[in-house]
Write a protein that binds this DNA or RNA. Structure first.
Lengths: 215, 215
DNA sequence: CCAAAAACTGAGGAGTTCTTTATATCTTGA
DNA sequence: TCAAGATATAAAGAACTCCTCAGTTTTTGG
């Protein structure tokens, strides 16, 4: 909730009464629903308000403008996602790398797949705004968590942990996104998930204790 | 150019005179420029026309509506991209898998990086429309090309070539996209590119001649 | 050279969308 | 209980946007 978001995107005021908190929640929920049902460019303030069962004016009491709403929704989502991955990473401290990889891939994949339409809708919506800080913050959190995890691996050490970790995450995030974009049928998606784990494990085995980074 | 695009997205008429061809080109170019400069949701018919140095009416002579224009631009781009990758794949028939991987990754990465702002702009814009058929067609082309390539590898055979190929491409496409999304600095981006090749090679080594697909 | 075909123009109608604001209603704490 | 603060409302203005069409200009082929 407390965020280093660009100021122009921060909420206008916070709900103080219970009623207001419920309203804000309803607005968030409505935003996602509209996003899922109508797509990012049919998301209008009126539509969201209507769906949330409040008037437009109410929305503008909490969010200075549409973008801020968008931003807040994505922030929430990414924050929850980061939390899950952080948890998974923490749970694997000291485990063999193959277990680590498996856990991270599975967790990330699972979260993204739990509500596929939402995932898809948000993948599409992050585009609409200056998402740099959002992505950055998310990446930072996960980066840190998995780097710390990898450092505790008993069966491998990495000369350039930072790069290895970055590559791993880039690949995992990207692969999942690709699968969504191509809208692969569950069977193939699942197969890819499995192969992705193999791939990451093979990669880590190949680079572990390797000199710097071979040119 | 002849495409199996949804009919409602097909061009209205084709240019017959040289002048008209130039106009259409200018419109394409302008679309990309506006996309780069102003982003997808500030892309308006007026703005594009203005930038292209033609009147709005002219645009509507060739494209039935904005979406069709969008679609055409992306189709062009993806088609060119597919062509490059196909070429690279063809050139590697019979080469060792490590060379194959290197060539594909490098080619794809290079094309995407040649004009980074354009790449970024289009990554953002594909979202705006029913891009399924677009992505599908692109993926299909590349899939076919790389599968054919991999089948000729002298130093490896794959029990489930289809899945391996799919995984490979999903990963490569995704990783590149991720790098753009995170806006990694050139140094890190380059490092990841290198690592990605290692990763793919390690993966192929791990699964080659393997039984079916290990559960 | 000239008529027919092709290409181009751009003002403006019809419809949206964002956001403000004056007003009304609800909650809370003393 | 009741005033003050917190919330909610909905009408409406200003600003855009998409797309059309009646009319003009350019190109082409004979």
């Amino acid at each position: 909730m407390p965020s280093n978001a660009p100021m122009h995107l921060t909420p206008r005021k916070r709900p103080r009464q219970a009623r207001a908190a419920a309203t804000v929640d309803a607005i968030f929920e409505a935003t996602i629903q509209v996003l899922v049902a109508d797509g990012p460019d049919r998301l209008t303030t009126t539509r969201v308000a209507e769906r949330a069962g409040v008037s437009v004016g109410t929305m503008y009491q909490y969010f200075p403008h549409k973008q801020a709403l968008f931003y807040a929704v994505n922030e929430r989502y990414l924050s929850a996602l980061a939390e899950r991955v952080e948890g998974a990473a923490r749970a694997q401290h000291g485990a063999p790398v193959s277990e680590m990889v498996k856990a991270i891939v599975t967790t990330y994949w699972t979260v993204k797949t739990e509500r596929p339409e939402v995932t898809r809708a948000l993948y599409r919506s992050v585009v609409e705004l200056d998402n740099e800080s959002l992505i950055e913050a998310f990446a930072q959190r996960v980066d840190t968590a998995t780097a710390a995890m990898l450092a505790t691996a008993p069966d491998a050490a990495f000369a350039d942990l930072r790069t290895v970790n970055l590559t791993l995450l880039t690949t995992i995030f990207g692969a999942v996104r690709s699968v969504f974009e191509r809208d692969l049928p569950p069977l193939e998606a699942h197969a890819v998930q499995h192969q992705l784990i193999l791939m990451c494990v093979a990669y880590l085995a190949a680079v572990k204790s390797a000199p710097r980074k071979a040119s």
